[in-house]
Amino acid sequence: MTADQHPDPVAVARYFFDMLPHGCRLGIELVGASHARVQARLPYRRDLVGDPGSGHVHGGVLTTLIDQASGVAAVVAIQPPEAVATLDLRVDHLRAARPGEALYCSAECYRVTRNVAFVRCTAHDGDEEHPIAVGMGSFMRTGRQVVP
């Protein structure tokens, strides 16, 4: 297959984001996608809060945002795109996101092997220079091709 026959990464990423009911319900939006990279955004909402005293979003909300962006980054990095399953994901919380601010993340699939795709992801709350979290994930390839 030649490069111009590859499906558009934005169309593939959009297809996956729309297909994930929980991501839609949480409010995760696709910001952009290119080969092996996916950017996503999640607006602040009161029901995402994990610490009612401070208004900080729950850590698991970031896990969900990072899992979704990282998984789809793995999908678009595989040619032709293939469904993947999360093997493991680690999130380091560098500092708390500011209450009221949208969360952003950028995931990059930096290595694809015959069975596994490796992804790193950085999240921030508006200032890219000061990340709030870093995620590292590995994803099992399923062999099921994705045609949006």
């Binding site: 009911p21 929980h22 850590g59 698991g60 896990t63 990072i66 899992d67 994901l89």
Partner: peptide, 27 residues
């Protein structure tokens, strides 16, 4: 709940839901 699904065709829970649920359990 259908709201927590990540893959509609299986259906399977969103990996982030499992992670967030585990984190709530710990806290």
């Amino acid at each position: 709940s259908d709201n927590n699904v990540g893959n509609r065709s299986l259906p399977a829970l969103h990996g982030g839901v499992i992670g967030a649920f585990a984190e709530h359990a710990a806290i």
